[in-house]
């Protein structure tokens, strides 16, 4: 099996593994974060492929879907769920910003390495900082949605 398929398999395994660490009283938060992140990644993911900014040569369901099903449907939403579940809500702003930067950077670095050494993803009109910014913004929007969904009780 090619390295790409091993990577995809391990992404599915690791993401599923993360799910098991989510505390029971935060399952609903995780579900909302997961589902909401999907609507961002679906749309943006499809649009960037449609305009030829990125391509995913090796992917699941290659004939019907030219985006990365693994990343957009599962891996990134799971990371977003984890992001929200362990969000340092009552800590200083510096730590909160650091939390965003940390998540975005780790994901971007992983993506750049994958881009460089495998054909899971190819940047066409895309740069590492585009990933960094879009990942950060996507995490932020999802976080705001979760805060609205759970804490603001008034209508």
């Amino acid at each position: 099996m090619r390295i790409e398929w091993w990577l995809l398999l391990s992404v599915w395994v690791v993401a599923t593994g993360i799910l098991f660490f989510i505390p029971k009283n935060k399952i609903r938060l995780a579900v909302v974060a997961f589902l909401f992140q999907q609507i961002i990644t679906f749309l943006i993911g499809l649009v960037v492929v449609e305009f030829g900014l990125l391509e995913y040569p090796v992917r699941l369901f290659p004939t019907v879907n030219r985006t990365s099903f693994t990343f957009e449907y599962y891996a990134f939403p799971v990371i977003c769920a984890a992001f929200n579940v362990w969000y340092p809500n009552h800590r200083s702003n510096l730590i909160q910003v650091g939390y965003y930067v940390g998540f975005s950077s780790v994901l971007t670095i992983a993506e750049v390495i994958i881009e460089k050494y495998t054909s899971l993803i190819n940047y066409i009109h895309w740069d590492w900082y585009t990933s960094l910014i879009t990942i950060g913004v996507a995490l932020y929007i999802a976080r705001e949605f979760c805060v609205w969904f759970f804490t603001k009780g008034e209508v």
């Binding site: 993911g45 499809l46 649009v47 492929v49 449609e50 030829g52 369901f61 004939t63 019907v64 879907n65 030219r66 985006t67 099903f69």
Partner: peptide, 23 residues
């Protein structure tokens, strides 16, 4: 829908993002 379209249960000939997805 992804498996349904993959195994040709149905198709969407006119669609919004024809290059990115068949759905």
């Amino acid at each position: 829908d992804i498996p349904a379209f993959k195994y040709d249960l149905l198709r969407a000939p006119v669609r919004e993002l024809p290059k990115a997805t068949d759905l």
